[in-house]
């Protein structure tokens, strides 16, 4: 196995990103903590997904740089980046009639070329990914016959097979019910415990607090605050981000903050 422990750093230096002529993110600085799960939270349209796309070189910056191990990510050959950083976008269209193992096999693409299509390490990485995502029993199933949670696990397994120290996920649980959300979050947590540095865009605040080591709270393209969920999560922050009033209590089991007594503030 390739060493996947958090030795590859990813950071944004004075990053400015635009959609067309609209500036989404301006002069943003961020460093992902190594070997930890970072959750990017914030209201719709705050630039979370744009930031993730910027960090994963899908979106070209208009100013500033994304640094991969201290070097501009756009200065690397794209395939070399793909061996260090895996991205799971929201829009995951797949070829029709493909099964789980075939999907995971695509994750090996950055390690292959036209004349080097299959090595022993490819199969090893796929077997490892199948095990890690607990998909051994499902590997021959067609992707479109799986439940939402299983399908999302298959996509994550594809990123695992990519064998990258960095993994970025854009709303990995957005279309999933509670049970399937937990399934995916626990997998993400396990991956970080094995040493991967993970960043994910998450909508659900309590889940973000529960499963992330580090929270980045964004609004209007800027980072409002960041840090350990237990420390930074306050009712003032929730009000500032989402315009709702609530009380926060610690989860009796895990101690992570839970939102209760939620009320919408009538006029802002």
């Amino acid at each position: 196995m390739v060493d996947q422990t958090g030795t590859v750093s990813l950071s944004a230096d004075n990053l400015t990103l635009q959609h067309g002529k609209t500036t989404i993110i301006e002069s943003l600085n961020l460093t992902l903590p190594l070997g930890k799960v970072t959750a990017i939270v914030g209201p719709n349209g705050c630039g979370k997904s744009t930031l993730l796309n910027g960090l994963s070189r899908i979106h070209h910056p208009i100013g500033g740089t994304v640094l991969l191990n201290g070097k501009d990510i756009h200065k690397y050959p794209s395939k070399e980046v793909a061996r260090k950083l895996a991205l799971l976008p929201q829009d995951t269209i797949s070829p029709d009639g493909i099964n789980v193992e075939e999907l995971i096999r695509f994750g090996r693409h950055p390690h292959q070329s036209t004349m080097k299509q299959w090595k022993m390490s490819d199969q090893e990485a796929i077997d490892y990914a199948l095990n890690a995502a607990d998909l051994n029993g499902l590997k021959d199933r067609l992707l479109n016959t799986l439940s939402g949670g299983q399908r999302q696990r298959a996509w994550i397994a594809m990123s695992i097979a990519q064998e990258t120290p960095l993994l970025l996920l854009d709303e990995p649980t957005s279309a999933l019910d509670l049970g399937h959300q937990i399934e995916v979050f626990e997998l993400i947590k396990e991956l970080s415990e094995e040493g991967k540095t993970i960043a994910m865009v998450v909508h659900d605040l309590p889940s973000a607090c529960r499963y992330a080591d580090h929270i980045v709270a964004m609004k209007d393209g800027k980072i409002v605050t960041q840090g350990c969920p237990k420390k930074i999560m306050t009712k003032e922050l929730v009000l500032a981000l989402y315009g709702i009033e609530c009380d926060l209590i610690p989860d009796p089991m895990t101690g992570s903050p839970i939102l209760i007594n939620i009320k919408r503030v009538k006029s802002l």
């Binding site: 070189r57 899908i58 794209s78 793909a82 895996a86 991205l87 976008p89 695509f106 994750g107 693409h109």
Partner: peptide, 9 residues
């Protein structure tokens, strides 16, 4: 999708 393909380098 484009993002997946770019993600693969």
């Amino acid at each position: 999708s484009d993002a997946v393909v770019i993600g693969f380098g």
